[in-house]
Write a protein that binds this DNA or RNA. Structure first.
Lengths: 197, 197
DNA sequence: ACCTGAACACCGTTCAAGT
DNA sequence: ACCTGAACACCGTTCAAGT
């Protein structure tokens, strides 16, 4: 008679468990601290064990990225979809940077992109133009949020300089700035729809 | 009587020399291969010598980034300034990624940004809107080019998969796609100018 | 002023071997 | 199927010491 934890026929750790552990390490240490060894430590396992579940770190990061961006929700307006993506990135430490690299390496499917394409089509763009519009929005959302999250971290580390940077005259809500840039692109999309290209 | 190279009163290596060496390593090995040790090797120097010239790697990367983006050239149209920035990033291996991180860390002044703000003001935007427009364009240019450069590298490594990805029906010139996205944002800026906000 | 030499505390990845 | 233990070839950074 042996406990389930001793039974060799039962899986010990799944891919999901590994990603769970990675999310924990990411939340606590950020992307620079997200090492294979730290993930292994959380799982109480040797580093090499991780390589049974994932071929390399990039593949694991792609799974983490997929967790961050979630599944696609229902269709909606363009601005809504872009804002929803931004919120998911903001919800995880260094979320934008993690997603950015997985996306650039072609290792991540971004559900939000499909929603953006759909929204652009509804707005009246051609197929080709809708894809261009979606990519433009994706680059903007990720670029803006990446920049914002890096500055948040820098503000924590260099708290001394923060007082200088945050001179009251220059203060501006990043959320407002994000919305303003987004509005700029959306109005460009509407203009393109009118032109009929 | 001793040679100049033996004279301790003459500087041996300057910050410029270190950045030169870093540019060489970047060109040959890309950002992942841009290590302090490799830079030191090019200079025929110990790694620790680099820390007399720069306090850390990030500061060195900021100097490399400044070299990549160059000094600001004369004013011009918005689309020209954005395209000029993109060309500078494309001219160096992993240029967009290097610049992106320096910029996010607040370690780099982007001369192109001033030109973009100027162009937006000329187009008729308010001061605040011009800054938003410039940042939106910067995020787009860097995001697009980063994505493009990563895929170029991936295409070299995974040359086998490249044949699959490049199915003739889906082929599209990245330069054309860049211009199309840029036009979208520029037309959004023109629309904002008309609205008078 | 500019650099050496050595060390410290890490990395990602591989691989034979165990159960 | 899932993991251990040990090794390999690297990292960035620090610091006393040299010239």
């Amino acid at each position: 008679m042996r406990a389930a934890s001793d039974d060799p026929s039962v899986p010990r750790r799944s891919k999901t468990d590994v990603v769970d552990a990675a999310m924990t390490v990411l939340a606590e240490n950020g992307l620079p601290g997200l090492s294979m060894r730290r993930i292994a430590d959380v799982l109480d396992v040797q580093v090499s064990a991780l390589y049974w579940h994932f071929p390399n770190k990039q593949a694991l990061l792609a799974a983490v990225s997929a967790r961050i961006v979630g599944q696609g929700s229902d269709a909606g307006e363009i601005a809504e979809a872009a804002t929803a993506l931004r919120d998911r990135l903001l919800a995880h430490r260094d979320g934008a940077e993690v997603v950015s690299s997985s996306l650039a390496l072609g290792l991540l499917d971004l559900p939000a992109r499909a929603r953006l394409v759909e929204g652009a089509l509804v707005a009246g763009l051609t197929d080709a133009a809708a894809h261009v519009a979606a990519d433009t929005l994706v680059h903007y959302v990720i670029g803006f949020t990446f920049h914002e999250q890096q500055r948040m971290h820098a503000a924590v580390v260099g708290a001394a300089n923060a007082a200088v940077d945050l001179s009251p005259e220059r203060i501006s809500d990043p959320g407002d700035d994000f919305a303003a840039g987004l509005a700029l692109i959306v109005s460009g999309i509407r203009a393109a729809a009118r032109t009929g290209s």
